[in-house]
Amino acid sequence: MSALDAVVKPKTKRAKRFLEHRAPKVNENEKNTILVKGGNASDTVTKSLRDIYSLKKPHCVLYKKKNMTRPFEDQTSLEFFSKKSDCSMFVFGSHNKKRPNNLIFGRMFDFHVLDMIELGVEKFVPLKDFKCSKCPEATKPLLIFAGDSFEVNEEYRRLKNLLIDFFRGPLVTAVRLAGLEHVLHFTAVEGKIFMRSYRVLMKKSGCRTPRIELEEMGPSFDFVMRRTHLASDDLYKQSMKRPKAAVIKKKKNISQDTFGTTYGRIHMQKQDLGKLQTRKVKALKKRPADKAGAGQESPKKKKLV
Rank of each mutant, 00 (worst) to 15 (best):
L171F: 11
H185E: 14
S220C: 10
H59L: 09
F92H: 07
P24A: 06
F92Q: 03
I164L: 13
P58D: 03
V45M: 06
T278M: 12
F111T: 10
T261G: 00
D51W: 05
N32M: 09
R157P: 01
H112P: 06
G293Y: 08
F18W: 14
I144L: 14
K47V: 07
I104E: 00
F124L: 07
E122R: 14
V113T: 10
R70K: 12
K64F: 12
V200D: 01
P71T: 04
L273A: 11
A146K: 13
N29K: 14
D272Y: 01
K250T: 12
K302V: 12
F166Q: 01
G39C: 06
S298L: 14
I144K: 12
V61G: 00
S82G: 09
P170F: 07
L78D: 01
R17Y: 03
K11C: 08
Y263V: 00
K301W: 04
S82C: 07
F167E: 01
R17I: 03
V152F: 03
K131G: 02
S298A: 14
T46H: 11
L284D: 15
M116Y: 04
E118P: 05
L142F: 08
K64N: 15
K249V: 10
D74H: 10
R242D: 08
D234M: 11
M202L: 12
Y236G: 13
R226P: 03
K244P: 05
V189C: 10
S255D: 11
C60Y: 01
G218T: 00
F72N: 04
V125S: 07
A289M: 09
Q238L: 15
S298P: 06
K249C: 07
P58G: 04
V125G: 00
E297K: 09
L127I: 10
N153D: 11
A6I: 10
S54F: 06
A188L: 02
R199N: 04
N101W: 00
K56L: 11
D257A: 04
L201V: 12
H112G: 12
T209I: 13
G169E: 02
P10T: 00
E79F: 04
S239T: 08
L163M: 11
A23L: 05
A289G: 10
A294E: 13
F130C: 02
K11Y: 05
V61E: 01
S54P: 00
Q271R: 15
S54M: 10
F130R: 00
L55N: 01
